[in-house]
Write a protein that binds this DNA or RNA. Structure first.
Length: 434
RNA sequence: UCCUCGGUAGCUCAAUGGUAGAGCAUUCGGCUGUUAACCGAAGGGUUGCAGGUUCGAGUCCUGCCCGAGGAGCCA
């Protein structure tokens, strides 16, 4: 029986008769010979149809194929230097599943298109070689994150997407109707992670996150994915090491298993290969001094602007860990440094090459009275956080964690200039469809 | 919310205030090894919307809509 073969495996079937099922990527013709390029989601294979070698209806069926028509083709796999990929299919028979109407041809042609047009056709754009490569790298990065934590004794504990209130009280949330009350889409699983860490010791959550900010930049989405570990008894140095280990593991895994995709994306692999531990650690104070030397107008006490982040991240050839920011620019639950209460035991990781912040986290305040004071300062409604305060009343321990933005990591590893291509269906300020 | 740039054929773009064009895509024709194939022909337009200036507006002015980049805010 003739086997159905995935294009990525055709080399193993050289000389054999096989079925390929997929879509027409492109068709070139030269009189009595046709070159249909077949795409099946695993690769692209060039077919050859010679008029004198096949029944007339086979030749005509292939000649009439339009871009992205679906089909099943039978033919012999042959090694062929002139074909892209090195193998070719001598098509003997073709079954057209659906021919795309020429009245309404496939909109994405093999030529250039603008951003808006491509985003409007995102559901079709995903079929392109480049987008498929990005989806592959994204998948590998997500899998690597899971493997990293699973192999180190972490328990995945899913945190809710519908929440009764803000996790951090600062950013703008999406409000939804929840029967007769208001609910909000989560902006972080962190507070729930802290509860989970008190139950299982080492935990992580991995899910979508929502921010209703009207940010319109190359590094913002309104819906994005975060992986957030939380570890009981961990302190700042512990989670800095954890963050470093995670990022180094993810980069190494992408280089190991997705080299082809990264080459398709024309990524400079030498830059990624440098991203091995140890990553430089830089106190906020030193970062401010470095920025001043490089001409920034930043003053001690303020958070880094986009430009500052870019300058810092371009100053090193691997990710850097910036720690101990001023407390007042960070969330209410950050633990102050006992030796310098004006700074928090927190850390951000900035990716190199100007990609900026990919991780943010730190040690959580373990003392109930401190938390209450900071919640008052930030005018947070105490009732909503009673359950969270319970964590400090029943066996409070030092603990720490962080969140990593998946899309920013994908953008960095793939070398993309915008996060909109890192997620299958991006949600942005001006984009809710498709 | 603010600043900058943009919106012309299905797509990517051109057009001193004076007859709206090209490449690709589509259709038809040609070509037995093409590599975003190539060659020839045809069809395809309310120049984002609404006003205004002018003998005449794609072009100048006003308002609005949509998009891109950035700022603020953030992962």
């Amino acid at each position: 029986m003739t086997p159905v073969v995935e294009i990525r495996n055709v080399a193993q079937f050289e000389g054999q008769d096989v079925f390929i099922q997929g879509w027409l990527y492109n068709l070139r013709e030269s009189g009595k010979i046709l070159f249909p390029l077949l795409r099946d989601g695993t690769g692209i294979l060039q077919g050859v149809v010679v008029k004198s070698a096949v029944p007339a209806q086979v030749f005509e069926a292939v000649r009439a194929l339009t871009q992205e028509s679906s089909l099943r083709a039978r033919g012999k796999v042959r090694k062929e230097k002139r074909a892209p990929g090195g193998y070719e299919l001598d098509v003997a028979e073709v079954e057209v599943l659906q021919n795309v109407s020429s009245e309404r041809p496939y909109p994405i042609t093999p030529k250039e298109h603008g951003v808006e047009f491509l985003m409007d056709h995102r559901h079709l754009w995903l079929r392109s070689v480049r987008q498929r490569a990005i989806l592959g790298v994204r998948h590998e990065i997500i899998r690597a994150c899971r493997d990293f934590f699973d192999d180190r004794g972490f328990t995945l504990v899913d945190t809710p997407i519908l929440t009764p209130s803000a996790c951090e009280g600062t950013t703008t949330l999406f409000e939804v109707e929840y029967f007769d009350q208001k609910a909000y889409l989560t902006q972080s699983g962190q507070l729930y992670n802290e509860a989970a860490a008190m139950a299982v010791g080492k935990t992580y959550c991995f899910g979508p996150t929502f921010r209703a900010e009207k940010s319109k930049t190359r590094r913002h989405l309104t819906e994005f994915w975060m992986v957030e570990p939380e570890v009981a008894f961990a302190q700042l140095d512990d989670i800095m090491a954890l963050a470093e280990g995670l990022v180094a593991f993810v980069v190494a895994r992408a280089l190991e298993r997705r080299r082809e995709e990264l080459k398709t994306l024309e990524r400079d692999l030498s830059k990624l290969e440098k991203c091995a531990p140890p990553f430089p650690r830089l106190a906020y104070d030193d970062a401010v001094n470095l920025l001043k030397e490089k001409g920034s107008e930043i003053a001690w006490g303020s958070d880094f602007g986009g430009t500052d982040e870019t300058i810092l991240s371009e100053s090193f050839d691997r990710p850097i860990l910036v720690h101990r920011y001023p407390s007042h620019v960070k969330a209410f639950y950050m633990q102050p440094d006992p030796e310098r209460p004006e700074v928090a035991l927190c850390v951000d990781m900035l990716a190199p090459e100007g990609y900026g912040e990919i991780i943010g986290g730190g040690e959580r305040a373990a003392d109930e009275r401190l938390l209450l004071r900071r919640m008052d300062e930030q005018k947070l409604p105490r009732e909503a956080f009673e359950w969270y305060l319970d964590l400090r009343r029943y066996g409070s321990v030092p603990h720490a964690g962080f969140g990593m933005g998946v899309e920013r990591v994908v953008a960095w590893i793939c070398g993309l200039d915008h996060v909109r291509e890192t997620i299958p269906f991006p949600r942005m300020l001006n984009r809710l469809t498709p």
